[in-house]
Design a binder for these strands. Sequence first.
DNA 1: ATGTAATTTCAGAAATTTCTGAAATTAAAG
DNA 2: CTTTAATTTCAGAAATTTCTGAAATTACAT
Lengths: 175, 175
Amino acid sequence: MELSPTMERFVLHWGEMGTRWGVSRSVAQVHGLLYLSPKPLTADEIVSTLSIARSNVSASIKELQSWNLIQTHHVMGDRRDHFSAISDPWEAFMLIVEGRKQREIDPTLTTLRQCVEASPDDKGLSKESAKRIEETLEFLELLTSWYEDVRRVPRPLQLKILKLGGKVAKLLGKA
Amino acid sequence: MELSPTMERFVLHWGEMGTRWGVSRSVAQVHGLLYLSPKPLTADEIVSTLSIARSNVSASIKELQSWNLIQTHHVMGDRRDHFSAISDPWEAFMLIVEGRKQREIDPTLTTLRQCVEASPDDKGLSKESAKRIEETLEFLELLTSWYEDVRRVPRPLQLKILKLGGKVAKLLGKA
DNA sequence: ATGTAATTTCAGAAATTTCTGAAATTAAAG
DNA sequence: CTTTAATTTCAGAAATTTCTGAAATTACAT
């Protein structure tokens, strides 16, 4: 797998974006590469294309699998794994959102609930602060329940609503 | 400013979340503290509460200001700055989204447009890869235009739509 | 079973990020 | 203008994260 200039630009940028969104450069580069590749790649092809250590590729693949962003394929007479990425941008996006929700939002909800529960017994906690925490919890719960709802809507309808954009407001403003 | 157990739990968690979302622990802790505090705090109060260096607080404040997440107040007869955080969770959330859009999405759109523009001349680039990049750009543009639309909707209506959740789909599914 | 290819683990190296504390700068008060 | 308080800058220290390469493990093939 040789990278054309455009692919290289894409993969490098993808890698940098990864570092800003909480995954390592390598993980994001591997994802970017698989995402662009017309055919599934073996770990060794990834190694030679990106010039990173075999073990790094192994770890990156494992990480991407934990996000459900890549799939494994098998080729007759070849015992190596071949990897490909989810190629639909909308589906990939939703998988990333789901992963971050589970990794970060859910634990935050747990912490906030513990805070709210402990508030009444905390003599050093001002009413204002306690209220602020409660409001934060309520907001995050509202946001996650919205997400859980939206997540279940069939893809075509999701797309439709996304394309409506601000018109949704106009339609519902009256309702 | 002494931290009660609940405030401490909140601030420490906020700090850890920060590290996962691309800001340093200190920046997130300072924000968490100001967010909870019933009254604006001086830099030195933040220093003693969080036990971090004065210069670190200074840098963190600067960072938070660049996100428009905090405000500066002045007290008669006191030449120190007093800082407070945006206390409405929804507004804070929107400011964070806006900041990330500007810092990460916009540059990505630029890169993708460059890629799409360069594609035809890139002999090494497969049709499939070129198409993948175009689709990604289209998706991101769709997402940002949706965001730009939603951003302009009046807050109360935004809230209303958020609360409707999946019902929006039911209402619009027929439309 | 034995050999070989593929993959994973893991300890430490390298790179990056974050933080500190001293020095410099800015700005208000006397 | 001088003094003092407040803030910022910045070089290097500390902490953290990421990556490598050798060794171990796993799994397939003969």
